[in-house]
């Protein structure tokens, strides 16, 4: 029972989840920005941009995240020499953020695109009819209305992203699942306890997140 009372283990447990939170936070911001740009491309009148957006989504939505993260480490870093920090852990962290963001952006893009489809076409037509440009129509009229129906799917994407962050453990970052593996190796008699604590921590973080997004979606629901 002394697994988590040992300060060294407790520290590892805390820092494991801090990595998860940092990975989730940075990747969420990058994926959101990237996802909005990709969605704008996919609905734009320019065929090249539409193709680029569709290509991105098709590639990253249909590739296992483990492969994407492996590619970031063994492809971008080991082979192509892209180093983002002198510190080993920070380098893994940023490579992880790149992988998680490119992957998650595909899902963000599709959530936004389906949100755009919930906005009646008449809204965009009326915007164009008073002389707004494509970018203005999207920014002022369509996206603010799409955002409201995109909040709930965003919640699911964020939750998936947080859990997916554990995959960065496969390239050696000591995030929560790696810490858990180490603890299980050292404390074979407390496997169930270790498992419950780690699963419970994820649940404690993510269940309120889900409820928060549900509440937000209801609050912002657009009246028609």
């Amino acid at each position: 029972m002394d697994v988590f009372t040992d300060p060294k283990n407790f520290e590892a447990y805390v820092s494991g989840f801090l990595w998860i939170l940092k990975l989730t936070g940075a990747s969420a911001v990058c994926a959101l920005v990237l996802g909005v740009l990709l969605a704008a491309m996919r609905v734009s009148p320019v065929p090249v941009l539409r193709g680029f957006g569709a290509g991105w989504v098709n590639i990253f939505r249909n590739t296992p995240l483990t492969l994407v993260i492996f590619f970031c480490y063994f492809g971008l870093y080991s082979t192509l020499g892209l180093s983002l920090s002198q510190e080993l852990d920070l380098n893994r962290y940023w490579l992880g953020v790149i992988g998680l963001s490119t992957y998650t952006a595909a899902f963000v893009c599709e959530a936004i695109r389906s949100g755009i489809n919930t906005v009646p076409t008449g809204q965009a037509e009326a915007a164009r009819a008073i002389g707004l440009s494509f970018a203005q129509t999207l920014r002022i009229v369509v996206l603010p209305q799409a955002a409201r129906s995109v909040i709930a799917p965003f919640g699911s994407i964020l939750i998936a992203l947080c859990k997916n962050a554990t995959i960065v453990g496969t390239i050696g970052l000591m995030e929560s699942s790696n810490v858990m593996k180490d603890l299980i190796n050292s404390y074979g008699n407390a496997v169930i306890l270790i498992f419950l604590v780690f699963a419970g921590t994820f649940a404690a973080l993510l269940i309120p997140t889900g409820y928060f997004f549900g509440w937000l979606a209801n609050k912002l629901a657009v009246k028609r």
Binding site: P120, G122, Q123, E125, A126, A127, R128, A129, I130, G131, L132, S133, V141, P144, Q145, R148, V222, K223, R224
Partner: peptide, 22 residues
């Protein structure tokens, strides 16, 4: 831009109003 400018000079009223809901 030229098309947007032209549209700004032609008012349009739709069957389903299409007021900006937000």
């Amino acid at each position: 831009k030229p098309l947007a400018k032209l549209r700004s000079e032609v008012g349009m009223v739709f069957q389903s109003f299409n007021l900006f809901a937000h």
